[in-house]
């Protein structure tokens, strides 16, 4: 299991905090999800409820079970997974898949790294807490990991995903991905795809 050094931004101090991007999701990560993510999510949902926020605006991934997800894809070569650990806690999780093909006309049929599931810890999500998010950069680094895996596999940096509704703008504008529209076969989520050129442009944003 490979491990790579990364940095997240601690919002309160505006300082870089060292962490790791790890290839794989371990029992420790799943335990973190159970022991820390879930209670934090439950508290956040309670607050949303008290504020009278419409349930349709609640985080759509709130029913996700990472134990089941990790178990379902364990050992599958076609479904690599990633975790981000920082300050001794799992901050982000991702499972991808390498057998899908591109839909965008200019790269139709070519393989890409498809992001099946991506989630950041509840305390890092700006919309979910009344306090500031603790650490940012998790989502960005996981997308970068998908791009680098794509490059390593010879897929040129091509990635694809179905965005959770509240992330549509981020994938479109910050990641610069192509919006292929609502996919009625996938819970009406919006499908985004990234070309090798868009991948280069995304990476160039941080240089």
């Amino acid at each position: 299991m490979s491990e790579f050094q990364i940095y997240l931004l601690e919002v309160a101090s505006d300082a870089p905090i060292e962490g790791s991007l790890i290839e794989g999701i371990t029992e420790a990560n799943v335990n973190d999800w159970e022991d820390a993510w879930m209670p934090a999510l439950a508290r956040a949902l309670q607050q949303l409820k008290e504020k009278g926020v419409d349930r349709r605006l609640w985080p759509q991934s709130r029913h996700w079970d990472w134990r089941r997800k990790a178990e379902a894809f364990k050992g599958l070569l076609a479904a690599p997974s990633f975790s981000i650990v920082c300050q001794g806690m799992t901050q982000g999780l991702m499972i991808v898949e390498t057998l899908e093909s591109c839909r965008l006309l200019q790269q139709k049929g070519k393989p890409l790294v498809y992001i099946q599931y991506l989630e950041t810890a509840p305390w890092n999500r700006p919309g979910l807490t009344t306090e500031r998010p603790r650490l940012t950069g998790v989502g960005t680094l996981l997308v970068r990991a998908a791009i680098e895996l794509s490059r390593s596999e010879g897929f040129g940096g091509r990635i694809g995903l179905h965005s959770l509704p509240q992330a549509n703008a981020w994938y479109a504008n910050v990641c610069g991905m192509s919006d292929l529209g609502i996919d009625p076969t996938k819970e009406n989520l919006r499908y985004f795809e990234m070309t090798p050129e868009q991948a280069d442009a995304f990476i160039a944003k941080g240089v």
């Binding site: 599958l76 057998l99 010879g154």
Partner: peptide
Amino acid sequence: EKKDLSKTAVLRQALRLYQAVEV
């Protein structure tokens, strides 16, 4: 040619597909 991949990459994809289907 079709997938714009090296021979190794194609064969790795084939292995992944075979394993996934088998599971």
